[in-house]
């Protein structure tokens, strides 16, 4: 079933497929959170974004109903803040989350889920359809596998290095043993590799294939030029006050 049947124009298949996979992942067991907890993270994020006016009020089937999930309060607070704005965050935000009981891996997975879910909701708002409903949560346990190659590379959490330093985990996570396939924006969430894989799948569908990044003519669709693509990208990053 198409994901955006209520939009009267076509959406490229690769976008539909990436967004469908993302939605499914929000209702499936993750690496450190189970399916109900991941679903609750998205619901919490959406509730916060609606409250901040960043997306339209949700239909009743999407509305807040997270009291039955065992998601810790600290994770809910991270989800809500990251969903609304990360503009003013500094390391004290991460330190507080850890002090409140989250592990670095739980923090990273929470950020990854919210960051990817926010993207789907921005897209829906952009084309003028409601946020997509979340699937029913699946059973099963989180895999709880911390990457052995993760190390301190200068961020608040550890990450898997690109290239040979990351070994097989880098290849599995970034799809290549080339260090250039792993810019820091992709290594950011790599303490939870599945989140990176989702991020890269979406980026490849929505923005660019990394191997074409330096080609100033490349776009994924001829309806928009590369300068127009980059103007949109730059303005979003200014709004989000992202130095990276």
């Amino acid at each position: 079933m198409p994901l955006y049947p209520d939009f009267e124009y076509p959406v490229r298949d690769v976008i539909v497929n990436a967004h469908t996979a993302a939605l499914a992942s929000f209702a499936a067991p993750g690496t450190w959170w189970n399916a109900a907890q991941r679903r609750a993270i998205v619901t919490e994020a959406r509730d916060a974004r609606c409250g901040a006016g960043l997306q339209e009020p949700l239909d009743s089937d999407l509305s807040r109903n997270v009291t039955d999930a065992s998601l810790p309060k600290a994770a809910r607070e991270v989800a809500r803040q990251v969903a609304i704005s990360t503009n003013d965050l500094d390391q004290s935000f991460f330190d507080q989350a850890i002090a409140d009981g989250l592990t670095d891996t739980e923090y990273t997975e929470t950020v990854g889920v919210v960051a990817r879910a926010s993207a789907l909701d921005v897209f829906a708002r952009g084309i003028g359809v409601p946020s997509r409903a979340l699937p029913t949560p699946q059973g099963g346990e989180p895999s709880r596998q911390r990457p052995a190659s993760a190390q301190n590379e200068g961020a608040w959490v550890q990450s898997i290095p690109g290239g040979r330093r990351g070994g097989q985990e880098a290849i599995d996570t970034y799809g290549s043993d080339n260090p250039q396939a792993a810019p820091f924006v992709y290594r950011a969430l790599s303490l939870v590799p599945e989140e990176v894989k989702g991020q890269i799948r979406n980026a490849t569908a929505q923005y660019i294939r990394l191997e074409e990044f330096m080609n100033p003519e490349f776009t994924l669709d001829p309806s928009i030029t590369r300068p127009q693509v980059e103007l949109v990208a730059a303005r979003v990053s200014v709004i989000n006050q992202c130095f990276y």
Binding site: S118, Y207, N240
Partner: peptide, 23 residues
């Protein structure tokens, strides 16, 4: 569709970068 997709993409990347504190 493309503009919405690009805005979506950077909504992810910027949040990940800022909330993980990457240089």
């Amino acid at each position: 569709v493309e503009a919405a997709a690009i805005a979506a993409n950077f909504s992810t990347n910027d949040r990940a970068a800022n909330a993980i504190g990457i240089p």
